[in-house]
Design a protein around this nucleic acid. Structure first.
Length: 201
DNA sequence: CCGACGATAGTT
DNA sequence: ACTATCGTCGGT
């Protein structure tokens, strides 16, 4: 499990370091895993960040020690973030890709499927910040302002480093609004499988 | 109570 | 580009 020190660094550095790390979530007695393939760094001074709106009870996690989980509703659905170095700074887990190994059996795929209303192909189980939360059954009331727990929910370093990483503030976004956008990082190997549908040109 | 607005996701 | 969706927030 990644320790508190891991999260206590600059948001952009943390966002990059999280690429390739594996989220482990125990559900119905089975470990479900997602390899992180896309992240976004939000600074307290960015207009795009929630922290820039000021401190409130709901946004308190952003001002808590690095490594604190911040969950909020994006378009009514849960979204996962982790606070980083500096008050108000955080990283959003934007997308993941299902990962299977000794600890996480392929059978977990069926459990993820049951967490959704409609059938969903495996490669899209982590295709988006709210979809990923749904696939792992991560909810706002259960995890906002909490820290990771090696018994049921944590992030692990398995040494999987992206072959090539893409970082940009304006992928698929209209030019001229860059200053309102977060820093974005994604594992280039998954660009085709996951981001293609979101960035279609 | 109501209307506007998202750090969305999927389809045309 | 369009829109179904739903929790928040601010104004009545």
């Amino acid at each position: 499990m990644l320790n508190q020190t891991f999260f206590d660094r600059d948001p952009c550095q943390l966002a990059q370091a999280l690429l390739g790390k594996v989220i482990r979530r125990k559900q119905q007695g089975v470990w479900l895993s997602m390899r992180i393939i896309e992240t976004e760094a939000y600074y307290i001074d960015d207009k795009a960040s929630h922290a820039s709106l000021g401190y409130t009870k709901k946004r308190e996690a952003l001002f808590m020690p690095a490594g604190t989980i911040y969950m909020y509703y994006a378009r009514g659905k849960p979204s996962l973030n982790v606070s980083s170095h500096g008050p108000g700074n955080a990283v959003l887990i934007k997308a993941g890709f299902p990962y299977f190994d000794k600890k996480s059996p392929m059978a977990g795929q069926q459990i993820m499927q049951l967490l959704h209303d409609a059938p969903r192909p495996l490669e899209r189980m982590g295709n988006g910040q709210t979809i990923l939360c749904r696939s792992l059954h991560l909810t706002v009331p259960e995890w906002d302002q909490k820290t990771f727990d090696n018994k049921v929910f944590y992030i692990e370093d398995l040494g999987l480093t992206p072959r090539q990483m893409i970082t940009t503030k304006r992928l698929g976004i209209p030019v001229g609004r860059d200053e309102h956008l977060p820093y974005r990082f994604l594992d280039a190997d998954f660009l085709k499988s996951v981001s293609a549908c979101k960035l279609k040109h």
